[in-house]
Design a protein around this nucleic acid. Structure first.
Lengths: 215, 215
DNA sequence: ACCCGCGTATGATCAAAATCATCAGGGGAG
DNA sequence: CTCCCCTGATGATTTTGATCATACGCGGGT
């Protein structure tokens, strides 16, 4: 599609100061970005595709540690760690920004305002990760959908623009796509949500009392 | 039990420089630590108990954003945010370290080595949160147990010392305690794991091929 | 000494989601 | 233009875990 140079317009933009010192690269599906024990050279940002962080036990049992999706940084730990702690594999064809660790460290040390910005980025990722944890701990698909809309939605919930396909969303919610299709259909029929193109909205009415999150 | 002053020995110790500027306090079950919109005054650390971060929609539907458990910081975002973004509620009687935001910010700005340390803490929390996400996305309880032991276990897996009860673990894994009891019993009978007091060990043999994490 | 509460444990039943299967429609590639 | 692949969608069947119920041992408090 795009020639290997990755010159298409990117959906996400990074801070100026970061763009100045990094480059954009495409990785083929199945390509290895780094392996555990490799000297940590770079921090990455995902524009498109998916990169998986794996820890491979000696018996071949791959444990999945993280799926880095578009809009996310990964291997941020490289900044203050001499070597990578796990393997990184481009699970799909992916466009990434590659940020040399050394230059990032220098920037962090000398540019106070950038350091603050970087901290905010990490904090945001942490908040989102934690919200996802609680979402995945919910028992039913419908509850996860509600949680998703309310936490990922613009201005305090009620509506989200879906970034990808419903299959992608299903994977995010930790359920099969079939279960998601059915649940969305049921919720729509019940008047609980409204689907409008790639937007998903919680109906203003049907806002039942959620008991204060037990278990 | 302990008089309100919270003078018992704490299980976790914070960096010296942090201890110097913070205080330890007990919170009663049900006590509100802060509400959304309150001026962000403090960052917290959980020694014992559980604090829940909630976003309360106007219709009374509480969305659980995070359960802060012993050994975790929370409301770290207070450092560079003028007001809290959600409510925090002591869900159980909890002992917390309260770290005044201003002093922490000063420390971060002036003490290069502390800033690095703090960054490592955040990165560690982020890595653990991401691993938990992938764990919760696993379909079966047994897979979650395996993932738990391999990621949380000492020296590259194979063994974990359980911090709390099996019920606590079950909640961490996002399943009912019954399901966990049964699964552990089945895995032990199958010779896949060994339970030794509060330790949980993966048997060296039974290390079946995990296919590279599909879905 | 007794009771209560909690963690551990196991059984029976039931609901929900996974799995497998099939099909329609749209968009891209040839 | 046609074919094929992918997403969306729905049905049938199976599996899993949630739920409810019961039981036992232990430690703390009255």
């Amino acid at each position: 599609m795009t020639p290997a140079g990755a010159s298409q317009t990117l959906r996400f933009s990074l801070p100026q100061s970061l763009q100045a010192l990094s480059r954009v690269r495409d990785y083929a599906r199945g390509e290895m970005l780094f392996r555990r024990g490799d000297p940590a050279r770079s921090v990455f940002f995902v524009h498109s595709g998916e990169v998986r962080m794996l820890r491979s036990g000696r018996a071949g049992e791959d444990i999945l540690l993280h799926r880095a999706r578009p809009g996310e940084y990964f291997a941020e730990a490289a900044v203050d760690c001499p070597e990578y702690l796990c393997d990184a594999l481009a699970f799909q064809r992916s466009t990434l920004t590659v940020i040399p660790k050394g230059r990032l460290a220098t920037l962090l040390a000398h540019d106070r305002s950038f350091a603050t910005q970087w901290n905010s980025v990490l904090m945001r990722e942490l908040r989102m990760a934690r919200a996802r944890i609680e979402r995945l701990a919910l028992a039913s698909v419908a509850e996860r959908v509600r949680h998703f809309v309310l936490t990922e939605g613009r201005d305090d919930g009620c509506e989200v623009a879906l970034a990808g396909s419903l299959k992608d969303l299903a994977r995010d919610l930790g359920v099969t796509h079939e279960a998601l299709y059915r649940t969305l259909a049921r919720m729509e029929k019940a008047g609980e949500i409204i689907r409008d193109g790639n937007a998903l909205r919680l109906a203003a009415s049907r806002r039942g009392k959620r008991r204060p999150a037990d278990r």
